[in-house]
Write a protein that binds this DNA or RNA. Structure first.
Length: 368
DNA sequence: GATGCGTGGAT
DNA sequence: TATCCAAGCAT
């Protein structure tokens, strides 16, 4: 008789039975190899399944295995990632692939401690790979699991709080069916995505409703308790489409900053009460050591980042006759391109909109 | 431990 | 339109 805890809890029983009938068909579930699990887990960080789906398919077609990823260029990797956001994920993925090739003969390590050493892999992803790819008893404590267990046990302390996290980890661990961590984790993620959703949860369809304390107390909509949010600032930003000798200027952003590694039309924040044209001349002088004439406005773009919003105004610009050529003083590279060339340069959303606009509206023919 | 890091969809 | 938020990680 097994007297250890290797007796599945009623919770896990009900959950796994529900999962057997309701599991989602997801592209990465058709790929049994650890590489696919890893790629999908990185893409899914803070990102919705429906956003990830086409990116994953395209990525696997382009980089079918770890070796092809390791051999790729950063530009290629970022181009395939463009639009997914949090671009350091792509650069970390690329660097980790190279480390795995060198240090582990191209095979993802199995232990969570070794996985944790790799760039872009934190506690969640290490546990997810260990459980889903290698069948280990690990808890991938993501937002879904936290939400579900905060409701099941009516946890009334805020997420992010160390005590709350410890409590939720203990609760999820206590119900883990040994040897079935892969299904357990994925079942909870599917339940969180399909039934125990952040808004309008479908409690009447939930396989765990009988044991849900928040449902019994009518506090489901209050759980989990979210930490207080800060107001996000708004900035006016200007960007220069610098034309010179029938080409326009792109600049590559530093890799450790916002939109790291992506190419942009250079510019920057407008200071309070500063005229837009003046701000643009100042930014180009500071960043590129060049003097420009600011010409026609090319458009206004509003965009929301996670922690601030911008209104960006783009202007057609030319180098002043006596200006030095632009240099990459704050960027990592510069390129003179045509609008058609832009497709090859990974960009963030707004810069891509500007590039597309230039392509569609025609390249302004300015002689100089 | 707090902050910085994208984007698109739902409400 | 504004807000919320979705399978976190690095510093």
């Amino acid at each position: 008789m097994d007297t250890s805890q290797n007796v599945y809890s009623k919770l896990a029983d009900n959950l796994l039975a529900w999962y057997a009938q309701n599991r989602r068909a997801l592209p990465w579930r058709d790929h049994p190899d650890p590489y696919a699990v890893w790629i999908s887990e990185i893409m899914l960080q803070q990102t919705r399944v429906e956003s990830v789906r086409p990116y994953f398919e395209r990525w696997m077609a382009h980089f079918p295995n770890l070796a092809t990823l390791a051999a790729a260029s950063k530009e290629e990797v970022l181009r395939l990632w463009e639009g997914l956001g949090y671009y350091s994920r792509a650069l970390h993925l690329h660097r980790a692939a190279q480390i795995i090739c060198e240090r582990y003969d191209g095979q993802l390590p199995h232990s969570q401690s070794e996985l944790l050493q790799l760039p872009g892999i934190g506690p969640y992803t290490a546990a997810a790979i260990a459980a889903l790819a290698f069948g280990q008893d690990a808890i991938a404590l993501d937002g879904n699991l936290k939400r579900i267990f905060a409701r099941l046990f009516d946890v009334d302390t805020p997420l992010g709080n160390a005590q709350t996290e410890k409590c939720l980890r203990a609760l999820t661990q206590a119900h883990l069916p040994h040897g079935k961590a892969g299904d357990y984790n994925q079942a909870l993620m599917d339940l969180g995505a399909l039934v125990c959703t952040p808004k309008n949860p479908q409690c009447e369809r939930c396989p765990l409703q009988q044991g849900c304390l928040a449902l019994a107390r009518n506090t489901v909509h209050l759980r989990p308790v979210r930490p207080l949010k800060k107001r996000i600032p708004h900035y006016d930003v200007v960007a220069a489409v610098v034309m010179h000798k029938q080409h326009l200027l792109l600049a590559r952003r530093a890799e450790d900053r916002l939109l790291g590694g992506l190419w942009e039309f250079p510019g920057g924040k407008v200071r309070p009460k500063e005229p837009f044209e003046h701000a643009l001349q100042r930014e180009i002088r500071e960043e590129l050591g060049a003097e420009i004439e600011v010409g026609a406005p090319l458009g206004t773009y509003r965009h929301a980042f996670t922690h601030f919003r911008i209104t960006l105004r783009a202007y057609l610009c030319r180098l002043q006759a006596n200006s030095p050529l632009p240099q990459a003083l704050e960027h990592t590279a510069l390129a003179w391109v045509t609008p058609t060339d832009c497709a090859a340069y990974p960009m963030g959303k707004v810069d891509r909109q500007i590039a597309t606009h230039l392509l569609e509206e025609g390249f302004p023919l300015v002689s100089d």
